[in-house]
Design a protein around this nucleic acid. Sequence first.
DNA 1: CTGAAAGCGCTTACAG
DNA 2: CTGAAAGCGCTTACAG
Lengths: 340, 340
Amino acid sequence: MPKITIKDIAVESGFSLKTVSRVLNDEKYVKNSTKEKILKIIDDLNFEPDYFAKNLKSKKTRTIGLILGDIENPYYSSLSKGVIDYLEMRDYTTMLCNTNYNSEICNRYINALISKEIDGIILSSLKVPDKTIDKIISKNIPLVLIEVEYESFPDLDCINFDSYGAEVLAAEYLISLGHERIFYLVGPKILDVDVRVKGFRDTLKKHRIIFDNSYFSEPLISFEDGYACVKKMIESKSGFTAIIAVNDFIALGAMKAVYDMGLEIPRDISLIGFDDIKYSSISRVPLTTVSEPDYELGRLSAERLIRKIENPKERILPRKITIKPALIIRDSCKPNRFPN
Amino acid sequence: MPKITIKDIAVESGFSLKTVSRVLNDEKYVKNSTKEKILKIIDDLNFEPDYFAKNLKSKKTRTIGLILGDIENPYYSSLSKGVIDYLEMRDYTTMLCNTNYNSEICNRYINALISKEIDGIILSSLKVPDKTIDKIISKNIPLVLIEVEYESFPDLDCINFDSYGAEVLAAEYLISLGHERIFYLVGPKILDVDVRVKGFRDTLKKHRIIFDNSYFSEPLISFEDGYACVKKMIESKSGFTAIIAVNDFIALGAMKAVYDMGLEIPRDISLIGFDDIKYSSISRVPLTTVSEPDYELGRLSAERLIRKIENPKERILPRKITIKPALIIRDSCKPNRFPN
DNA sequence: CTGAAAGCGCTTACAG
DNA sequence: CTGAAAGCGCTTACAG
């Protein structure tokens, strides 16, 4: 069965290709009666326009790419939902690209997206080489960043979160409870994790707390990583009295390790996360953490992207929206029993 | 700057369009020296083939669609990861379609996918109208189902999980602990939730336990739904001694409600989930549940789909793979204090 | 190993 | 309001 094309519709209806095309694209200047007639034939013949032929000229795919670190992390799944829900409403479809924090995969995805000529890209918290960003810009593809900044491109649209301030909040809280030996669970380098680490370090310094590299873990990605790392930490009797995790996903893995080792939170060790994912409120010990509005972050960035796509001429101010953190105090921290 | 096309490459190299095309597609029968020469020019001119023109004839997009209920549910995010990881390895990209369990959205996605001429579809646990399946089949689009069956299409490829057996396991366990008044937290209708409910009902019947519609909740979707439903249940002093939730996501919301109402698990109420998501092992009370290998389910279905796509002639047996459930006993259930 | 021609199924100017 | 022609940037089938 050969494919039905607009030519068939044209022949059947007695109108020209162009008129059929007009009806298809809901353009003006078509007499109502001819419109109806053509619509009926389209329906009868079950015709559907060919995606590729259509885009060969007009180049609008109504799909956008969302690039993120790890969909298994609830922070990202909630953020994705924020993006997808909004785009769905606007009749766009989204291509979700899961990089596993691997910059090579990330690059491959960006190239794939570009070659599929998607209408825009949302890049969530990943630090890719300047060259890659350059490519996106030079192709004139609308781009919105979430929670990353690029020094070389200060004008990029960005929905930001004050991660620095968040970690200051977390560290100050722990220090106010008398903790000085605080272990920091670091995230992968491709994340802009440096500003978080800096918030932590600066706060320790401010309080004249001496620290060294042993206060920082290797880069961790998953729940399981958090688990393994903290288990080792406990086994080595390091003497830390508190832990800050770069995100709740890892914090929850850490919490599991503490319990599996026969210890308790916060009795033996205090723990603070980052994100406030759902599961932190119903974890073994409700987790004290810094809340980040993941769903809204996603939604905001989607709104912004669509606005850029649909009004290419409107000069949207490259205003960075920065969302403020809030410390959610639950039960995973307590005063240090043995202050120095 | 006008777009660079293969014509430019042809002119520059002195070869024909076809030869350039051959190099691009890595076809045989190109002299090595000409290949190198053309490759160099492609590189120099920074040429990239146009996605739409390319597919206008050959119709291979190397992208597949994954349709699921709710990416926020960890079961689905883990499953997605299984799919995406495998496809990424095989150099396919995946389009994730989040339906929020809405069959209209689901239908719209399927149409969008078809019109984008994706290479295949994975449909995860959603029951859509026969007409929709018909459309996919008639377009000859490779399809793999996860955890749904369609009576009208017994020959569809399907990676299945024995949900019926799983709920029998759960119900038997609770009954063996002396529970008879067991509340069942039902999922959305678009899921093939009937077989789970049936496993539960049949087991009650087998033990001659009398039950009625009050044993079943309204269809629930999210963590928050589970929370609200169980809160109401407790407030109404219904007298249930145990709860089975259609998935862990909802079970965890239920758990939160129990604690927020000042009760405890399993002291006041026993709870069983379904899926064994990560967070169930580190929840307020470690959750007893039925494990389902979400990541593997995703991976298996992706493997199967690619096999169908790349060997369209090979008659893959429409063998349903059925994965067996296992009860994971943790701490959320205890013997009923007041057996009838 | 290489190429000239036709075609994929639409849309874009342009003309009326 | 409507249409004929050219073109988008590739690939296919055929010929040599």
